[in-house]
């Protein structure tokens, strides 16, 4: 493949399961060295897309080239150059932490000596050296995920696919994973990840697509998306009582847009503090007020009318 050609190129990519269309004609390009994200709620088609890119799920339609190769015909050749961290850890419960890495390396045809060296380096990288001789089962969720990430790196891949790398982890464990992924990114590894956490997408992704119902609804850098679809600041108001709706009318004309959610009202404004002052001036007394920066959550809400995490 020629230099500058995208590592992953999808045109009109479709995945169907029976009557259900999980991925409904998406166009994606991932370039070397970038961290690319698929952001969307559960069921948006992110995992199906990742499995197609990982060459373990044949596309139902459209075109897909990975590293310039065909994922179905050249599956083994492509997979040899990918690292995959699936949504559900598929670690080997009958092996120790270290054996999980050395055995996986053997699946790539890596010589035993190299596999041992590589395992030691990677255990160090994901901070699991002390647990090297432990079985997998007693590990915490965060440790298992870090081991899965280490396993995905055992073949020194050109692209690392991470399907919801921090879902189900506690905040501390998430930060540890993010920090490791950030180091990988700095080393120039191409990362492709899915997430329904906007903070994850904002922290890690250079560029992302927002997916909903199997389609791509927006594409760009996190900053560009926020600039285009949200405002600089957002005021979150919570009113006591059952219905936030009743208060919405009194907020007319405040900022660029008002979004009413079941539990709060969002005001899209350029100056949060000024908006809060105006709310008081109108004689309203919300139980909770929060001024924050516009985020990808707002982008998603604006594009789909729904929140990312239901």
């Amino acid at each position: 493949m020629t230099i500058g050609q995208p590592l992953i190129q999808a045109r009109g990519l479709v995945k169907r399961f029976g009557d259900f269309t999980a991925v409904d004609g998406i166009d994606v390009e991932v370039r070397r060295g970038e961290a690319f994200g698929f952001l969307g709620p559960n069921g948006a088609g992110k995992s199906s897309t990742m499995r197609m890119i990982g060459c373990i799920s044949p596309p139902s339609g459209g075109e897909l080239r990975i590293l310039g190769l065909d994922p179905v015909r050249d599956g083994p050749a492509v997979r040899a150059r990918l690292g995959v961290c699936p949504q559900l850890d598929s670690l080997d419960p009958e092996l120790t932490v270290r054996e999980n890495l050395t055995t996986y390396a053997r699946y790539f045809g890596i010589p035993r000596r190299v596999a041992r060296e590589r395992a030691a380096e990677l255990l160090d990288f994901v901070q699991l050296t002390e647990r090297a001789e432990s079985r997998v089962d007693p590990l915490s969720g965060g440790m298992k995920r870090r081991l899965t990430i280490a396993r995905a790196l055992v073949n020194d891949p050109e692209i690392v696919l991470l399907d919801e790398p921090t879902t189900g982890l506690d905040p501390q464990a998430r930060h540890l994973v993010w920090e490791r992924l950030f180091r990988l990114k700095q080393q120039g590894v191409t990362l492709v990840l899915t997430t329904h956490y906007m903070d994850e997408a904002e922290q890690l992704c250079d560029r992302l697509v927002v997916m909903d119902g199997g389609r791509i609804v927006a594409e760009g850098s996190p900053r560009a998306l926020i600039e285009r679809h949200a405002t600089r600041e957002v005021v979150e108001l919570r009113f006591a009582g059952d219905s936030q709706e009743a208060f919405a009318g009194k907020l007319d004309g405040l900022g660029e847009r008002v979004e009413v959610l079941p539990d709060r009202i969002l005001l899209y404004v350029s100056d949060g503090d000024a908006a809060v002052a105006e709310v008081s001036a109108r004689g309203l007394d919300p139980a909770g007020v929060l001024v924050r920066r516009g985020s990808l959550e707002d982008v998603f809400l604006h594009l789909t009318g729904r929140t990312l995490i239901d």
Partner: peptide, 11 residues
């Protein structure tokens, strides 16, 4: 064990 789910991601 879902062992092969991990294996098929390799060559």
């Amino acid at each position: 064990m879902k062992l092969y789910d991990g294996v098929i991601a390799t060559p």
